[in-house]
Amino acid sequence: MKTTPAVQLDTVTLKLGQADFFFDCTLAAGQVTAITGPSGSGKSTFLNLVAGFETPDGGRILLEGRDVTGSHPGERPLSLVFQDNNLFAHLDLFTNIGLGLDPGLKLSAAERQEVSDALARVGLAGYEKRKPGTLSGGERQRAAFARALVRKRPLLLLDEPFAALDPALRLSMADLLAALHQETHNTILIVTHDIEEVRRLADEVIFIDAGTILFHGEKRIFLTHRDDDAISKFVLPS
C-alpha cells in the first residue's frame, strides 16, 4: 500500500533562543499520533512547525505531499484545537464556527445548516447564539471540535486539548474525539503529556526530548519500551 504521507518533516531544524530543534519523521494518513515528552522538550514547537506558526531554519515540511515550508498558516490543509481560547470571546458560537467555513462569513443556506449540524453532532444543539463566556470549559472545547468538523481538513492538530478539563470530562471528550475520528478518518496529531491519553487515543507515538525525536513508532511498542531512561521514566508511574 503506497499512499502519500499526511505529514512529513524532512530534516527540519530550528533555533529558538538557546534551544535547538531537529525533527525528521513521516506520518501516515488516517492515524492518530500522540506527540509526547517531558515539558519543555519541544512538543508544542513540533506542532507550531506543522501548523506554520514557526518557520524552519532548514529542511522541508510536506503536508499531503505538498511542500508548505514557507506557507502561511491559513494556506495549510489543517484545523487546530488549543488547550484554551479556541473561540473568539465576543462572537457567538454560530459565527465562531461559521468562520471556519468561510473567513469572510459569507455562508450559503446549506453551510448554515452544516454549522447547526456540527453543533448538534458535538452535543451542543441549539447553542448557535450562545457566547463562549456562558459555556463551561468542556462545552467550549466541544465547539472547537464542531469548527474542526465543518472545516473538513484532512489534518487535525490538537495542543493539549483536554489539559484544562477535569478527569471525568477528559474521558468523555476523548470518546468524542475517537468517535469523530471514526467518522472522518482524518489524520490527528495530539500533543499531550498525559500517558493515559496516549494509551486511550493514539495509534502511534512520537516521543520528543530535548528538541529531537527519541522514539517514533506504534503505541504498543512505546508502552513496553524499556531501553531508554527518559521514555521508561515517562511511561512507568514512579
Partner: peptide
Amino acid sequence: RLSASLGL
C-alpha cells in the same frame, strides 16, 4: 494563531 489558521 486562530485567525491565521482560519485564513482571515
